[in-house]
């Protein structure tokens, strides 16, 4: 091979010059290149029928693909539905704290702050929402999770703090009997409500369970309010640009709304945050069950299991 290359005929001097001069070389090479590169557009202009047919074909293909996907989703839905039912039969709490405690006993770690997203539904109304809150509160109390925050975009729950407290304490009674855990219900910017549950507690001691109601206004809006406050301070000369740090915003938002939750449970079939406070969700584990749309104990339990298995790495 190499010998052949060596032996190859020497390029004539005129030819050589042609190759050395870049312009001449370009002209030489151009003869062997295909025509201009805006060729495809001219082709499509000159062949409208073909383009049209291709478009039709693509549209048809998309229709086929969508149909297949929808059939797949439907089968998956049936499969998951049966699975979820099976789980809910297998793991049912029977309103006994001991059963729930037994379920969570083997978990290495539990979230200290659990958050859930509940959606307001027209059929169920507020009653259904409060009912869900009461149920989830009981599970948390049994499992030993001290803080529960409930995100509901419209803020309907915030108007029923005392009612929620009453209904939840009733539910706790039915779970625990006479010695029920103490409960406090609160929402940002509203007085907290404990109905005598915190009377026996010393200062700084918190009740067994704290339920916090948050809504869309505690998300982006709270950050806008904070920005306004900071700007106001800046105008008065109490603050400069350099004073605004991640720590400052973090501390302010924590006192204004909620601290960072450890685990967020969605009871919806796909992950959409619906305006959940953005700052707080940084490292929160997000759990959802595909194709699930009900609030059930099995979702709660599977979320806790999933959480316990997960290793925290903080980017390390």
């Amino acid at each position: 091979m190499s010998t052949r290359r060596l032996v190859g005929p020497p390029i004539a001097t005129a030819r050589k010059q042609e190759f050395e001069d870049p312009k001449a070389r370009a002209a030489y090479v151009k003869k062997f290149l295909p025509a201009k590169d805006d060729e495809p557009s001219t082709r499509s202009r000159s062949r409208p029928v073909r383009t049209f047919l291709r478009l039709c074909l693509y549209k048809f293909l998309l229709w086929v693909l969508f149909s297949i996907t929808s059939v797949y989703y439907r089968t998956r839905y049936v499969k998951n539905f049966i699975l979820n039912r099976w789980f809910s039969i297998l793991y049912y709490h029977h309103k006994t704290p001991e059963l729930i405690q037994k379920d969570v006993k083997q978990l290495d770690r539990l979230p200290q702050h659990l958050s859930v997203i509940l959606e307001f539904e027209k059929e169920g109304g507020v009653e259904q929402l409060i009912d869900h809150v009461a149920e989830i509160s009981c599970w948390c109390a049994c499992a030993g999770i001290p803080t529960l925050s409930v995100y509901e975009p419209t803020g309907a729950l915030k108007k029923y703090i005392s009612t929620s407290h009453r209904i939840t304490t009733q539910r706790l009674h039915s779970y625990f009997g006479k010695k029920r855990p103490t409960l406090r219900v609160l929402a940002p910017h509203l007085p907290s409500y404990a109905n005598g549950d915190t009377e026996g507690l010393a200062d700084g001691e918190s009740p067994d369970l704290e339920v916090i109601f948050i809504s869309e206004e505690d998300g982006r809006e709270s950050m806008v309010d904070l920005t306004k406050t900071l700007c106001e301070m800046a105008i008065r000369g109490k603050m400069t640009k350099e004073d605004v740090t991640v720590e400052l915003i973090d501390a302010e938002l924590e006192s204004l709304t909620i601290p960072e939750p450890d685990l967020l449970i969605l009871f919806s079939p796909c992950v959409k945050l619906l305006g959940y406070p953005p700052w707080q969700i940084r490292l929160t584990e997000i759990f959802h069950l595909p194709d699930n749309d009900s609030v059930g104990y099995q979702v709660f339990l599977r979320a806790l299991y999933n959480y316990a298995k997960c290793e925290m790495r903080f980017g390390r």
């Binding site: 992950v271 959409k272 945050l273 619906l274 305006g275 953005p278 490292l283 997000i286 997960c310």
Partner: peptide
């Protein structure tokens, strides 16, 4: 398979964004 946002697009992903793990 990690189901966290890990400090990414917190503000942007908060309303209608579909999040896929």
């Amino acid at each position: 398979g990690v189901e966290r946002l890990s400090d990414f697009m917190l503000w942007q992903a908060h309303q209608d964004t579909d999040i896929e793990f």
